[in-house]
Design a protein around this nucleic acid. Structure first.
Length: 915
RNA sequence: GCCCUGGUGGUGGAACUGGUAGACACGCAGGACUUAAAAUCCUGUUCGCCGCAACGCGAGUACGGGUUCGAUUCCCGUCUGGGGCACCA
């Protein structure tokens, strides 16, 4: 009886669909477990073998937990708003909803083929009005909240209004507040709202007609398409994520993320402790405020640098320097971000003004330079050239004399940022170790009222507007410069548009629909929300996906609680993961959910790269030369070569299938001739990103058809650790397939069909089974799926050798296999006469007594040198072992009468004897 | 430049808290069954040496040191692959 995987897999997939075997209830006596995949953007290209890696891992773990008696939530959905669908719409005129729907259908059929245990009844799509209704609702919650700086949490904006009405603030009194106009009040409130609007410089991409987030801009060009990006002032929505900087940092201590992931988030948040300090300006009543992390170096300040955009520049510049300053500011403005990043040349201009060092009265020249950023700290620094590389280079370039405050630690050639030097030339700090002087200096500044401790963050508030069509509309209307929440009932649906091109002045396509934007209440907001809006809270909606009254019922979110295991790529380290952590904290603060970190454990799956194959055509001919015959990558016997991608699917290992190649692109290659090497055409190989255009994609559907989903699942795991990136290679899949066929033959005979007996297993057979139970359990618990697959292979090899066809062994084995290869497991389990589903069987219990042995031959080394073996009881006591060792002829001879000094026992085994 | 990670046979990779390095699989070589092929099974496969034989000898986890009875694992230095950040004061 042959292993007919196609029929078996179809049968069980239909069965499980019919019986709704993957439906998950919110009511259960079992403990809960929540396994989540980062949901995909449904692109038009469909899945390639790289996508399912994480999905297979999460599926295995979900099924494993289910066998272990947990009520497991394992949902799937689609992050279906986004730019590619919109660009496709612009090109083809098709509505993004149509193409998105089509793509989702393809994705779902591909996913189902692999046999995932998703509860599709909980599917969410971020572009579905029933979903984005609640994205909009959460936006309104953010808008109507502020971050209370004393209690460090979000509170309703009403509480702030009440405070302003009764107590005022540091900027105005209660009386003044009550006299403000509605628009004035709104301006003040806007400074505190968690979702707020302001004019800001944004990354404007002319070609895409939209504003991009910082993480969508790479090296000054758009991540998608590589178009140039420039700064533009526009009214934008933002999320006040900076308010949560500290809590986002502290929260990392409570979650199980990889160290590198935490590090990336910490770097992004970029917390630094230092001090802000005011310097008087000579002949002016203006003060220059700087931020420094090294107040200990205050006596080494030789000049000040202010960002060219800084407001103070115009008021302090001297008459003589005025023109030079204006010229320099103009020059800086002319430079794009790309230029600034590409050529970091030293430039700057003296303002003619001098600041006064409050401790020694020294006059310090004030410069402007583009290396000081307006957006960080106070936009001004005190430059200490002997301790800071950039300051040193600047001083050298403009011949500014350098004061040495660290003695021999400074060599005059380059700055030294040490904190270990004893200070010199430093007034009251002389002789003090720098790291101790930091605190002393700040205390002195605070005492004199000229400075105070200050924490700064690199992270900026997150831009939340996109000038696009295919995203969530804001439920906001404007009256002039004053916004308010629209009174429409949610969802505020995306209106239909005729064309998807941008509106005037950089506005989004929605601006073109005048009948939509103009309402009796005011003018609608025309931008839409960014991609991360919908993905910041989707894990909550899965819990209660059809709730029309709430985004997610509180008692249900209390039950499911945090995501126990979240699997996805590292590319979302500082985007999605930070945003969803912030949203979770806000919803927690406002009492909508009961936990403030969304993901308890994060597992990052590696990327599967493509392994590209190349053929080499002699330039201007249709002759192809085998890679093994080339002089080098570009040459063959003096002829230049064209290096052309060949489809990996028509190459066997590195050997090109010549007939298939000719048919592959008939127009181009039908008449191809080949210069072979020993009758074979050998292709070149390179590892690249998997992509259609490189013809290195492998479609999981093809592999499922050829080998079956179970083989495909196990092979993806067998490739190596899930966290590791690796190039795809289909070659080894045969080995896994052979394993499943071998397993099948344990249960069946060619002629007799099913052959499993009810005989009692032997000790050896029990041992094989229980060894495997232990190994599979341990490996699965620590996400070592590749070694678990190997353990199955060892088990089946051993049972084959033992010719074991006993139900008592094979039935537990089928259950063990269920998470990894559910279809064949179900078929085998069913064949043993079980009518209940293997999906709900219970995971076999490991019995240590079944693998125990009474005595064993142990290797023993003496002084790590001589090696011999001793037959010893397993759990032997140390003194007893000593006697037995001494009695051993070989040991005695080797020791030559020397006394035994030490016995090394490991896990109750004697490993080494020291003489 | 800074931070994080890795470096093990021809290949993918095992070895979990230091305890017989190379599990498992691919590939390769040889063999069995077969008219033949496919499928399946068996044997060998880190490198070098010795040999009638062996459960024989020596070296070996990027390189150089160290700790230890014992190091792929821990420590120090060097080289190197990958990822992230990059004028953040």
């Amino acid at each position: 009886m042959e292993y007919q995987f196609n029929a078996i897999e179809k049968k069980w997939q239909e069965e499980w669909k019919k019986t709704r075997a993957y439906q998950v209830s919110n009511i259960s006596d079992k403990p809960k477990y929540y396994v989540l995949d980062m949901f995909p953007y449904p692109s038009g290209a469909g899945l390639h073998v790289g996508h399912p890696l994480g999905y297979i891992a999460s599926d295995i773990f979900s099924r494993y937990k289910r066998l272990k008696g947990f009520n497991v939530l394992h949902p799937m959905g689609f992050d279906s708003f986004g730019l590619p669908a919109e660009q496709y719409a612009i090109e083809t005129g098709q509505h993004p909803a149509t193409t998105t729907r089509k793509n989702i259908t393809t994705f779902k059929s591909q996913l189902d083929k692999i046999g995932f245990c998703y509860d599709w009844e909980r599917e969410v799509q971020t572009s579905d009005p029933n979903y984005y209704k609640w994205t909009q609702w959460i936006f309104v919650q953010l808008y109507n909240s502020y971050f209370c700086n004393s209690c460090k949490e979000a509170k309703p904006i009403e509480a702030l209004i009440k405070k302003y009405e009764t107590k005022g603030s540091s900027k105005f009194t209660a009386e003044q507040w009550n006299g403000f106009s509605a628009a004035e009040k709104e301006e003040w409130l806007m400074l505190r709202r968690l979702a707020f609007s302001k004019y800001g410089e944004v990354n404007w991409c002319e070609a895409l007609g939209t504003v991009l987030a910082n993480d969508e801009v790479v090296n000054g060009v758009s991540e998608r398409g590589g178009h140039p990006v420039v700064k533009k002032k526009m009214r934008q929505w933002y999320l006040r994520i900076t308010a949560y900087a500290d809590r986002l940092l502290q929260g990392l201590e409570t979650v199980d993320f990889s160290e590198s992931m935490k590090e990336m988030q910490r770097n992004w948040i970029g917390r630094s402790e230092g001090a802000e300090m005011d310097f008087a300006i000579k002949g002016s009543d203006k003060k220059l405020r700087v931020y420094t992390t090294r107040p200990d170096t205050i006596f080494g300040v030789d000049f000040m640098v202010v960002a060219p955009e800084h407001d103070i520049v115009n008021t302090i510049k001297s008459a003589e320097q005025s023109n030079a300053v204006d010229e320099y500011v103009a020059y800086v403005k002319s430079r794009s971000d790309v230029e600034r990043q590409a050529e970091k040349k030293i430039s700057g201009c003296f303002t003619g003004a001098y600041a006064i060092n409050p401790f020694d009265g020294r006059e310090i020249p004030v410069w402007i330079s583009e290396y000081v950023l307006a957006g960080y700290g106070t936009g001004a620094i005190m430059a200490v050239p002997c301790g800071d590389e950039r300051d040193f280079k600047f001083a050298k370039h403009f011949n500014i004399p350098v004061t040495n405050i660290i003695g021999s630690h400074f060599n005059g050639e380059e700055a030294n940022a040490t904190k270990e030097a004893l200070l010199e030339n430093s007034g009251f700090l002389n002789g003090i170790l720098m790291k101790d002087a930091i605190g002393i200096a700040v205390s002195k500044m605070e005492e004199l009222g000229i400075g105070k401790r200050k924490v700064n963050y690199k992270m900026r508030d997150a831009g939340f507007s996109r000038q696009r069509y295919w995203g969530e509309p804001f439920p906001i209307v404007w009256n002039g410069e004053t916004p308010q929440v629209a009174k429409d009932s949610l969802p505020l649906e995306l209106p239909h548009v005729e064309k998807y091109g941008p509106g005037a002045e950089g506005e989004g396509p929605l601006a073109n629909i005048t009948e939509w934007i103009n309402t009796p209440e005011g003018k609608r907001e025309t931008s839409t929300m960014p991609g991360y809006a919908g993905s910041s809270w989707y894990f909550l909606r899965y819990m209660d996906p059809n709730n029309g009254q709430e985004f997610c019922n509180r008692s249900i979110s209390d039950y499911w609680n945090q995501v126990d295991l979240y699997i996805g790529g590292t590319e979302h380290a500082v985007g999605h993961l930070l945003y969803s952590r912030m949203w979770t904290k806000v919803l927690y603060d406002l009492g909508h959910i009961g936990f403030d970190e969304p993901f308890k454990k994060l597992l990052n799956q590696g990327m599967i790269q493509g392994s590209s194959r190349f053929v080499y055509r002699i330039n201007g001919t249709s002759k192809f030369v085998s890679h093994s015959k080339l002089t080098n990558e570009h040459e063959y016997e003096g002829h230049l070569l064209d290096k052309i991608h060949a489809d990996v699917n028509i190459v066997d290992g590195v050997e090109l299938n010549i007939e298939a190649f000719k048919k592959w692109k008939v127009g181009e290659f039908a008449d191809a001739e080949f210069i072979l090497d020993e009758g074979k055409y050998i292709c070149g190989v390179e590892t690249e990103k998997m992509s259609k255009s490189k013809y290195n994609t492998v479609n999981p559907d093809d592999l499922c058809n050829k080998y079956g989903a179970d083989t495909f699942r196990m092979y993806e795991m067998f490739l190596g650790p899930v966290e590791q990136s690796k190039p795809w290679d289909t070659k080894g899949i045969e080995g896994v397939h052979r394993f499943l066929k071998k397993l099948w033959r344990l249960f069946t005979d060619e002629t007799k069909g099913w052959v499993v007996t009810n005989d009692a297993p032997t000790a050896d057979e029990w041992k094989v089974l229980h060894k495997t139970i232990k190994k599979i359990e341990d490996d699965t618990e620590r996400f070592s799926f590749n070694t678990a697959v190997s353990a199955f292979m060892v088990c089946v090899n051993e049972l084959s050798d033992l010719k074991c066809r006993k139900k008592a062994i094979l039935e537990p084995l089928a259950i063990l296999l269920t998470p990894y290869a559910p279809h064949i497991a179900a078929e085998l389990y069913h064949s043993l006469g079980n009518t209940s589903s293997v999906l709900d069987a219970s995971f076999p219990t490991f019995d240590a007594s079944k693998v125990a042995e009474s005595s064993k031959e142990y290797p023993v080394s003496i002084n790590g040198k001589l090696r011999t073996t001793l037959q010893l009881p397993v759990d032997i006591a140390q003194d007893e072992a000593e006697k037995l060792v001494m009695a051993n002829e070989v040991v005695v001879k080797w020791m030559e009468g020397k006394p035994l000094k030490k016995f090394i026992f490991v896990k109750g085994r004697m490993i080494n004897v020291v003489v």
